[in-house]
Computed example of a mutant assay.
Amino acid sequence: MSNEVPRARDHEVGRVRVSRQASRQAHRAVAELNPGYAALVMATGIVSTGLHLFGWGTLSDILLTVAVAAFAVLLVAYVWRLIRFPRRVVADAQDPGRGFGYFTLVAALNVLGMRLALEHHWLICAVLALVSAPLWLVLTYAIPGSMVVGHRQNPVLPRTNGSWFLWVVGTQSLAGATATVAAQKPGLTASLAPPAVAFWGIGVVLYLMLLGLVTVRLLDDPVTPHALSPTYWVYMGATAISVLAAAAILALPADLPVLAATRPVVSGLGFLLWAFGTWWIPLLLAFAVRRHLVSDERVGYDPTLWSMVFPLGMYAAASTNYGRATGLDFMVDIARVEVWIGFAAWAVVAIAMARKLIRSGRKRSDAATE
């Protein structure tokens, strides 16, 4: 009995120590949360969509569950960070290299909504789009606005990177979700079609504008292998989601006034953007080879890797929907293969993330027992 009391006390002390260590780890993780971490939800949701489009229902449902759970966890983390570390949130928003990552929240809401719409959850899709609209409005003026008129010590353009295209992705996700709801709710079709087309047009113009800025940045200054981050895959992802949104708009009744005025433009630009996004893929692969093979940079888990998975999944979903909407069957055939490339990329990054979380947990446990 005399030894049991000290053992119980030691056990309780150890448990409290582990709890405190876990709390500190969570606190630090929230403080350092990458603004673009919601790309995890975008990537998982769109790969789930692609699998669903080709009839792989069970696997698609598993990924949908993962996407919903991840979004719930990240939503808590984002809100916690906003309340507990508001200065870091503002600093990230004013950082040209990180600020546009917040648009992953807009895109995550709408990618989830469009995936749930495939299960006939139109009301949820509409609610998520409604929530994302004011968030998009705030971000679309606050982030670029702070870079233009805010106090800055260094030039903005040298800090540009592929994450700037998340502005386009967020905008086009809103266009796609709006068109998706409009197609399924006849009473709202006439009123939702114009904003859907308007968002799509804004997204296309933003893409063209950012294409020049980011490409000039790549060509003007020497670019180190480390600077060729996975966010540059959003170059292609922005075109892919523009094509997906175009397909959703083309599914609306052709006799609507806004469709009568813009349908040829939406259809034509949709295909041109698909072709341009396809052209980008070999160049982006060259970037990856340059960073990870030629430079021998160690490949490890980084949240920005989800920004590479998302375009791969989006390319498959966009090619499928646009190909079916326009009768271009070869696009569907390409997507039938490419959807598994997207899933494979998702699995690799998910395993890397899980391994990092497990290692972090073990280090925390070892530190607590010392």
Results as ranks from 00 to 15, higher is better:
2 S>Q: 14
3 N>E: 15
11 H>P: 00
37 Y>S: 13
42 M>A: 07
47 V>P: 00
49 T>H: 06
49 T>V: 07
50 G>P: 08
53 L>N: 01
54 F>G: 02
55 G>C: 10
65 T>Q: 13
65 T>F: 13
79 V>K: 12
80 W>C: 09
84 R>M: 08
86 P>H: 06
88 R>K: 12
92 D>G: 07
98 R>C: 04
105 L>F: 12
112 L>T: 05
113 G>R: 02
118 L>G: 08
120 H>A: 10
123 L>H: 14
128 L>Q: 00
131 V>G: 00
138 V>C: 14
139 L>H: 06
142 A>L: 10
144 P>E: 09
146 S>N: 13
149 V>H: 14
150 G>N: 05
160 T>L: 11
161 N>F: 01
164 W>S: 05
164 W>R: 03
168 V>L: 07
170 G>Y: 11
171 T>K: 08
173 S>A: 13
182 A>Q: 04
189 T>M: 04
190 A>D: 04
191 S>Q: 14
194 P>G: 01
198 A>S: 06
200 W>L: 04
203 G>F: 02
207 Y>N: 02
207 Y>V: 01
207 Y>M: 03
207 Y>I: 00
208 L>M: 08
214 V>I: 15
226 H>Q: 15
226 H>E: 15
226 H>D: 15
229 S>Q: 14
231 T>I: 11
234 V>R: 03
238 A>T: 00
242 S>L: 05
249 I>L: 14
251 A>I: 03
252 L>N: 01
259 L>F: 08
265 V>G: 01
266 V>M: 05
271 F>I: 01
285 L>K: 11
294 V>W: 14
303 P>W: 10
303 P>D: 08
303 P>C: 11
307 S>L: 10
309 V>I: 04
312 L>S: 04
319 S>Q: 02
327 G>S: 07
328 L>W: 07
339 V>P: 00
340 W>M: 05
343 F>I: 05
345 A>N: 00
348 V>M: 12
348 V>N: 09
349 V>L: 04
351 I>V: 15
355 R>T: 13
357 L>G: 05
359 R>M: 15
363 K>A: 06
